[in-house]
């Protein structure tokens, strides 16, 4: 990261108007959290959280969100590199398509996945005929839907970092005889490491909270496809204490991860 002077942190007192508006902005996030905490059935909490529904959902959420993050890394990083470093006709369109899941309602994304990769889908149909593999109603469907929604976060973050990268280091490395692969591995990746970490974190966070695409594409079955957000949604219908308890766990895990890792991984920003 080439840190230019104007990016350095300012410690000067901010204008009063900024503080007021900033606090208003903060209130938008804090108020619902307080509302949630006010509803937590503290005394029943251990019993509520020890149920199969909750442990199954937690396991599925962790597996699916980590798998989605790993896939995003493997597929999203090359995509970001191509978008940042190569010129080809239709690149803007490609970037738009990659960003689409950020704008699209997740339910629409899930329906689109169903039409393409469902049991009777364009690709899913022949796939099921040939291999017997059915993506919907399975953990693979959950991972796919989650990756679809979360991967753009990795791509934009990494693409931005690659664009802002000072090319001289890479140039020097290749002048010294490093292969393109070595340059990528030994120079480029270490230099964008903070942004990459930040992107991975965002991707994981989005994957962990994914609801719409998952329920539309993969359905909802405890122990197989029911992640934490789905469990909350279903419990909200019939058993609010459980819904609130699961929500609390989600908040704590997310907050823990974001607070613990964001600063550590991105300190050099």
């Amino acid at each position: 990261m080439s840190i230019t002077p104007d990016r350095r942190r300012h410690t000067a007192r901010p204008p009063a108007a900024l503080v007021v508006l900033g606090c208003l902005g903060l209130a938008l996030f804090v108020v619902p959290l307080v509302g949630l905490l006010g509803r937590v059935p503290w005394s029943d909490l251990p019993a509520l959280l020890a149920t199969d529904v909750v442990t199954d959902a937690l396991r599925l959420s962790l597996v699916a969100s980590l798998a989605a993050t790993a896939i995003s890394f493997v597929l999203g990083l090359p995509l970001a590199w191509i978008l940042a470093r190569t010129v080809f006709p239709g690149r803007r369109l490609v970037r738009g398509v990659v960003m689409l899941p950020l704008v699209l309602p997740p339910v629409v994304g899930g329906a689109a996945l169903l039409f393409a990769l469902g049991r009777r889908g364009l690709i899913g149909g022949p796939l099921a005929e040939a291999t017997g593999l059915v993506l919907p109603f399975s953990i693979w469907g959950v991972i796919l839907a989650t990756t679809f929604v979360a991967m753009p976060f990795l791509v934009i973050t990494v693409e931005g970092a690659l664009r802002n990268l000072d090319g001289r280091h890479e140039g020097a490395a290749s002048t010294l005889g490093a292969s393109r692969w070595t340059v990528l591995r030994r120079v480029t990746l270490p230099m964008i490491a903070p942004s990459l970490a930040s992107g991975l974190l965002l991707t994981w966070a989005r994957a962990f909270g994914e609801f719409g695409a998952t329920v539309t594409f993969a359905g909802n079955l405890q122990g197989r496809t029911q992640t934490m957000p789905l469990a909350v949604f279903v419990a909200l219908e019939s058993d609010r204490d459980t819904a609130v308890a699961i929500s609390l766990v989600m908040v704590l895990i997310s907050l823990g991860v974001l607070v613990a890792l964001r600063d550590r991984w991105t300190r050099s920003l």
């Binding site: 329906a111 039409f115 469902g118 109603f137 329920v215 539309t216 909802n220 079955l221």
Partner: peptide
């Protein structure tokens, strides 16, 4: 195979043949 959150989402998946 799935406990759909409402009637419509169940119908969608049936109509789609899933």
């Amino acid at each position: 195979d799935t406990d759909e959150p409402d009637v419509r989402s169940l119908l969608t998946k049936v109509a789609q043949g899933e």
